[in-house]
Write a protein that binds this DNA or RNA. Sequence first.
DNA 1: GGTGTGGATTGAAACGCTTCAGAATGAATC
DNA 2: GATTCATTCTGAAGCGTTTCAATCCACACC
Lengths: 336, 336
Amino acid sequence: MAAANVKDVAALARVSIGTVSNVLNRPEIVAPGTADRVMQAIEKLGFVRNDAARQLKAGRSNTIGLVVLDVRNPFFTDLARGAEDAASDAGLSILLGDSGRSQKREAAYLDLFEEQRVHGVLVSPLSDVARRLEGLRRRGIPAVLVDRSATGSGFSSVSVDDVAGGRLAVEHLISIGRRRIAYLAGSFDFPQVTDRLRGAQEAVAAHPGTSLEVIDIDGLTVLAGHAAGERIVARSAADRPDGVFTANDLIAVGLLQALVMQSDIRVPGDIALVGYDDIDFAETAVVPLSSVRQPSALLGRTAVELLLEEARNPGLAPRQVVFQPELVIRRSTSSG
Amino acid sequence: MAAANVKDVAALARVSIGTVSNVLNRPEIVAPGTADRVMQAIEKLGFVRNDAARQLKAGRSNTIGLVVLDVRNPFFTDLARGAEDAASDAGLSILLGDSGRSQKREAAYLDLFEEQRVHGVLVSPLSDVARRLEGLRRRGIPAVLVDRSATGSGFSSVSVDDVAGGRLAVEHLISIGRRRIAYLAGSFDFPQVTDRLRGAQEAVAAHPGTSLEVIDIDGLTVLAGHAAGERIVARSAADRPDGVFTANDLIAVGLLQALVMQSDIRVPGDIALVGYDDIDFAETAVVPLSSVRQPSALLGRTAVELLLEEARNPGLAPRQVVFQPELVIRRSTSSG
DNA sequence: GGTGTGGATTGAAACGCTTCAGAATGAATC
DNA sequence: GATTCATTCTGAAGCGTTTCAATCCACACC
C-alpha cells in the first residue's frame, strides 16, 4: 500500500513512464485514448506527483519565498494576497515567512529558501540583507525588495511613495482650512516614518501661514496615541493644533478616543485628523477616519511580476517601482 | 559558476561524497580534521544543500503544512506563531496557507502539501476535509484538525471549549449582578458561534431570575455590532439588556461605539459588555473591553506536538485536546 | 513495393542527495 | 605474527521525476 509512483501508473496503463510524464506535463502531444487510460490509472491508484523529484530534475522549485516584517499587519497580508494571486497566475505558489522583526528569523527564512532553491525571493527587509541576497543571485535566484525603495542596491524594488503620502495628508488638512498642523509619530528610525514627515514638511513649506509641530511619541500604537491625546487635551485651546496627521491609523484611533471621550474637543470641528494605512478599523472608528491608503495588493502583485521578469532574463537592469498612495476622506476631516 | 554540489565539495576537500554528507548530517562520526577540511570547502564554494534531493531521498519533506481560515485574524497568526515555534524545536518549518474561507483555496493548499509530501498537515477546516485528509493519511501524512473538536472523525484535534467560553462570559455578567443578558451574534452556521450560545444558555439556566435574549445580526463585524447597538439604543430603558455578550470583539467594539457615542447609556453602568477573542483593540477600546481569551499560541504548539507524535508512531489512536478559555476582565464589566 | 513523413511512444540518463555494506587503517590482544 | 576490534572513509545504489534521442507505426505518395 505504498504511495503509487509513475512507474506503477505506467504499468497499470500499459505505457512507458515517459508517456505518463507527458500526460502530466504536455497532454497535447499524447493520443487521447492513451491519455484517458493513463488518467484512469492515476485515478485508480490515487497517484500524486512527488514534487521533490520534479524539483530536483528542474533545478528549482515552483515556489516564491516571501518574508514579511509582520503578518499581523494587514498591509502585509494584503500584500501577500496580491503576491499569491500573481504567483498563482504563473502556476507558482507562495511560501510565506514572518520575520516578526527578528533578524534571526529573517536570516533563517532566507537560508531555508535558498536550500529549497525557490524560484525567487520577495523580502521586506529588516536588516541589511544585500549580502545574503547577493548570494542568492549568484545561485540564480532573483530577489525583489518590498516596501522599500532600493535605488543603487542592485535589486529591484516596489514601494510606496511615503513622502507623497505625507504631503497628501497635510495638503488635505490645509485645504480644509487648517493652519497649525501636528505630525504625531514614534519610531523615527523607520524610513517610512521620516518620509511621511518629510512630505508633511514639504506641504507646510508650500503654504505660507501654516506651521508644523512634530510630536514624538513612544511607538506606533493605540496606547501611544491615546497618551499623546491626553497631553493635547491638557493644553489650552489656543495652543492646540487644528489638524493632526498621524504616522499610522493605530495612533489616530488612540488619539481620537482621548479627544472624543475625555474632552469636548470636536473631531473634525476643532481638530481634523488624518491617519495612515487605512486599516479596517479606520472606517469603523468612533469618528470614521480619513486615511492614506497604500495599494498593498498591487504592491505584492507587481513584486511578483518584477521577479518573474528577472527570472526569465537574468541580468536585466534592476527596476524601482514606486506607487502613489491615495487619500481616503471620511468624517474625521469633513463635516459632511 | 554553477551552484556547487556535494561532489564539488568532496573534490575540493579530497574526500568522498559520502563523507561530505556525513559532515552535514552526523558530524560526530567523522574525524575532526576531515570535518574541518570539508567545512572549509563548503565555505569556499558557498555550498548550500539542495533540499529537493534530500527530500526525494527521505521520502518526505521537513515541513509542516498549515491551512488557516484567515491570516488577518490574530487568533490564527498567534496560532501559527505557536506552531512555528514548536516546529522549529523539532527542526521543521511551517508552510502557511491562507484559505481565506474559500473551499477552492483550501483544496489547492491540501493538494500542494500532498505533492510536497509534507511531514504533516494542520488545518482549520472550512469544508468537510475528512475525505481528503483520509487520502493524505493513506500516504503516511498525518493530519491534525485545529480549532475544531473532531470526535469520531478519526483525526486528532486541538480546540478551545467554546461552550465553556460562553458560560464563563455570562457567568461573569451574572456575577456582577446582571439579569437580562443578551447574546449578540451572526453567522450561526459557525460551530463556534453556536457553542458560545450554548454556554450562555447553560449559565442562564443555572441562575434563576436571569434571562437570555439572542440578537441575530448580520455577520461578525464592527458594522454589524454598531447597527445592533443603534437598535438597542432605540429601545426603552426598561426593555434593554443590562449585560451583553458578543460572539467576538469586533461586534463588541461596534456596539460600544453606538452606545457611548449616540446615547447616554453608560458602560458598564447601564450595560456591561463582554467580547470574545481578546484582540489588541479590546484593550484599547473607548472603554477597555472584557473579553474571553483563547490560548492561540498554545493551540498551535500543541497541534504540532500531536502531529509529530502521530508521525512517529502511525496508527496511534486520535486524541482530542480541548483547552479552556480564560476571562480577561476590564472596565466594560467593572466599575473600577 | 519502396520511401518518406509525422505523430506517438519508448527507455535510459540525469538531477543531487543519503545510506549502507564493505574496505582501509591502526591499535590492542593473544 | 595473527587475530580481533573500533574507527573512519568510500562509492555505488536508489529516491521519482523529466527529458530527449531513438524507435515504431500507419499512412500517403510515387
